[in-house]
Design a protein around this nucleic acid. Structure first.
Length: 793
RNA sequence: GCCUGGGUGGUGGAAUUGGUAUACACGCAACACUUAAAAUGUUGUCCGUUAUGCGGAUGCGGGUUCGACUCCCGCCCCAGGCACCA
């Protein structure tokens, strides 16, 4: 008996498949299309990790399944190759990002092939290649021409010592991760995409996609639409009359009579405008400085409310004309609403905390709980609100807004997308500046606008591109003396916001995708990590909506169906990371157990969307199962027993349904059960081959080997998915649990065609049941066909 | 802090979505084969008990129901995300 040698088998078939281009995707044929997509990886130096292994195996299985079912499946792969890690690596080692990245990509491809993942790497998208980013730039130009791009200043985390912008991730406890210097907020000019213009569509169109409910919820919360009103408060100082106005957004205009003070964000422009009138300016300025050193996260997280009163000025509550104090406090964020609030301590938790600390008036205007202990933030009936007393919140919201001449409006948490970065390793922004400093688009004929190579990577407080002589010369040569290029590059999220639109036509030099190839769009099933719930998915949706508006696409949503794979954790439930030294290398596992076992195990271990606690011990169960399958080919009989026949058809049905629902863990266990039955019974070659076919998407190598050894010349992966026979999959007898008052007291066998009356007679004649009834009257009985018979006494 | 998800044997998990809780797999134990070990096979394995029975158990406490892992209310704990990591 030949031993199951996974190394030999996998090496052999991987070579044969590659040489013979088994199942190459035909982009022009007439079969029904199915676009299966993985979130493309960032090619890090660490190589492919277990999370990739899980989601790419999941999509590979689905691709093979759909192909067997007769679909023409597009399942491409690519690399999100611009980004910070390669640049940091370059800063550290001097090795250019394109060199380290290309090396990493080669490594990823090698690893993917070892896992038996079926991608056509001639059709890959690599975001740093000019043939790709040419179209990223082209899309920027189209967005610019259609008024979806603008420039304004925005704040970034800044490290004075490193002289560079710092990602939130690199800020640890308010300090720079690298050098420990206190991070400050710095205003710099930045390009923005107008994603907020699509806020309502981004919420509403979630109704038309098949996504996990929690992902939809998260997106809605991220966009954060709230209905309310804009209300204007007049600002005065005792010495002068009306000077300024503060506009606030509130979702609770019904509580306006309870507004006993106002708060401005420390960065609010009005604070600077009032400089002359504020009597304690020194103290105010000091607070603003402190607030600037904090990241937004620090401010949100702060347990203790802080703030400073603007002495010498006050605002007038437009509802009751009372004079109320104005504070600056960092619990009010400049980026949300108008950056100013009316504070109603009786009915807002944060305002209540602040008012308690600063001894401010707390005035109940909505009757509710006891506001001495805590605020009441629910709706209710108005009190202490003059002519509005007795109204419901609902009614008063509109009436009070009208009364103070406010404007009913919606506010969104979503901010426009700041997409420029002071980094080297990103897509150049196709903008040049005239000698007068006016931003102009680079004409399409000059695309791709190449990323220069004559730069060094040491941070100096300016964008690395400023150091490129070639870029400056190129700009002057084309546009004239005194013209300068844009030195910022694009956020890497821009690259990944449209890559899926390129796959159907990656080599097209005239268009990002031809009209004919656009028939492949949109993506039918998208699989990737839940960490992308917000940004990547939202940005991609924005791109598609914007392109639809411009007329470049005729659909509204990029990903019709979306599923997430869970995180892979180590045995202690910790996230795997290189720094913790707990990373499991997929290739080492493949070496030891084979790609077929690794693929099957990772899908068997847990539902796709759940976290996986990596436990190496369990993989041997899968390996043993594959051995059983391998040796079964030597035990094939002329005929198949009735028992196996029945289980086979049930298994085909269940595995097909489970793959469709991405419930791979139960699909695998079903196939294991099947082999258990086969072992004690008999199966013919013809029926065993049906089983091999349903197993083949999971374990492409071993099934190909067995298939081949059973006398087939062509690949098992060109076979059709077997049909099952509903009659053969049907059971004759069912075990029904007999319950008395909900407790199982007996079991009886029934036939499918038995009526409820027949079952009841059988139940009541059962000795065990009679013992429990003990002559008592049956008040009620409930029969769930073929499952439960419950007697209530 | 805010948003979202989760908690079932020693372990990963299953449960037809309100209908026999613990499928499948790992581990463990006993037995078989072996000089022995490995491998393989068979059997057993939620807990308690006065064991063919009965009682209890799906993070904790309550509720709805003939019946709750599943639905509702209140807690506890864990994970992910929070806009310049991708």
């Amino acid at each position: 008996m030949e031993k199951y040698n996974h190394k030999k088998i996998e090496k052999k078939w991987q070579k044969i498949w590659e040489d013979n281009q088994v199942v190459n995707i035909d982009k022009d044929n007439t079969k029904k299309k199915f676009y299966m997509l993985d979130m493309f990886p960032y090619p890090s130096g660490d190589g492919l990790h277990m999370g990739h292994t899980e989601s790419y195996t999941a999509s590979d299985v689905f691709t093979r399944f759909k192909t067997m079912q007769g679909f023409n499946v597009l399942h491409p792969q690519g690399f999100d190759a611009f980004g910070l890690p390669a640049e940091n690596y370059a800063i550290k080692t001097g090795i250019a990002p394109e060199i380290s990245t290309a090396k990493n990509i080669d490594n990823y491809i090698k690893q993917m092939k070892l896992l038996g993942l079926r991608y056509d790497f001639d059709e890959k998208v690599v975001t740093y290649e000019p043939e790709y980013y040419k179209w990223t730039q082209w899309l920027f130009i189209k967005f610019f021409e259609n008024d979806l791009v603008y420039k304004k200043t925005s704040k970034i985390n800044w490290c004075e010592s490193c002289q560079t912008g710092i990602a939130n991730e690199q800020v640890v406890g308010g300090e720079c991760e690298r050098c420990g210097t206190q991070i400050v907020q710095k205003e710099i000019p930045s390009w923005f995409f107008k994603i907020t213009e699509f806020a309502d569509d981004l919420i509403n169109d979630l109704d038309i996609v098949d996504w996990p409910e929690h992902t939809k919820k998260n997106q809605k919360n991220w966009i954060g639409k709230s209905e309310g009103a804009k209300i204007v408060f007049k600002v005065q100082s005792p010495k002068s009359k009306v000077e300024k106005e503060i506009e606030v957004f509130t979702t609770r205009p019904d509580t306006l009579f309870g507004a006993t003070y106002m708060v401005l964000a420390p960065e609010h422009q009005l604070v600077q405008d009032l400089k002359e009138k504020v009597e304690n300016w020194e103290e105010v300025e000091k607070y603003i400085k402190e607030a600037q050193s904090k990241t937004e996260m620090d401010r949100i997280e702060a347990k203790d409310k802080t703030g400073v009163k603007l002495e010498g000025i006050f605002a007038t509550n437009p509802a009751n004309k009372e004079e109320i104090p104005i504070f600056i406090a960092d619990y009010v964020l400049s980026g949300y609403g108008t950056g100013a609030i009316m504070a109603v301590p009786a009915h807002d938790e944060r305002d209540f905390e602040f008012a308690t600390k600063f001894g401010l008036d707390i005035r109940e205007v909505i009757s509710g709980g006891d506001i001495k202990e805590e605020s009441y933030s629910g709706d209710g009936v108005l009190v202490n609100s003059t002519q509005f007393d007795g109204m419901t919140s609902e009614e008063a919201k509109q009436k009070i807004t009208e009364f103070v001449e406010g404007e009913s409006t919606s506010n969104y948490r979503l901010r426009d997308w700041s997409m420029s970065r002071q980094r080297y390793w990103g897509c150049p922004i196709p903008i040049v500046y005239s000698p007068e400093g006016e931003a102009k688009l680079i004409p399409e004929e000059h695309l791709p606008w190449l990323l220069p190579t004559d730069v060094d990577f040491i941070p100096s407080g300016k964008s690395p591109l400023e150091k490129s002589k070639e870029l400056r010369e190129r700009t002057e040569k084309i546009f004239g003396k005194g013209w300068t290029p844009e030195f910022d590059t694009m956020d890497t999220f821009v690259d990944s916001s449209w890559y899926f639109l390129r796959y159907p036509d990656v080599h097209n030099e005239r268009e990002f995708c031809s009209e004919d190839r656009k028939k492949w769009l949109p993506v039918d099933l998208y699989i990737g990590g839940a960490e992308h719930t917000y940004m990547h998915l939202l940005f991609s949706r924005f791109f598609v909506k914007a392109m639809n508006k411009i007329g470049l696409l005729d659909f509204n949503e990029p990903f019709l169906k979306l599923r997430h794979q869970g995180m892979i954790l180590d045995g202690e439930g910790k996230k795997m990371s290189k720094s913790k030294g707990n990373v499991v290398n997929p290739n080492e596992m493949v070496e030891r157990f084979g790609a077929d076992s690794v693929r099957t195990y990772i899908l068997f271990a847990t539902p796709l969307e759940d976290e996986v606690m990596w436990n190496e011990d369990n993989i041997v169960g899968v390996y043993r199962f594959l051995e059983k399958v391998f040796y079964q080919r030597e035990k094939l009989e002329e005929t198949t027993s009735q028992e196996v026949q029945n289980v086979l058809h049930k298994t085909i049905r269940k595995v097909g349904n489970d793959i469709n629902g991405l419930k791979y863990n139960t699909a695998v266990s079903e196939m294991m059960k099947f082999m258990k039955v086969v072992k004690t019974s008999q199966i013919s070659q013809k029926d065993f081959e049906k089983f091999l076919r349903i197993l083949s998407p999971f374990t492409p190598h071993i099934t190909e080997e067995i298939w081949n050894s059973l006398g087939h010349d062509s690949s098992i992966h060109l076979e059709k998915w077997p049909a099952y026979d509903e009659k053969l999959a049907k059971d004759d007898l069912y075990t029904v649990a007999v319950q008395i008052n909900g407790k199982v007291r007996a079991e009886i066998e029934v036939r499918d065609e038995d009526s409820e009356k027949e079952v009841k007679d059988k139940v009541l004649s059962d000795l065990r049941v009679q013992k429990w009834l003990d002559g008592q009257e049956v008040k009620k009985s409930i029969y769930i066909k073929n499952k439960i018979f419950n007697i209530v006494i």
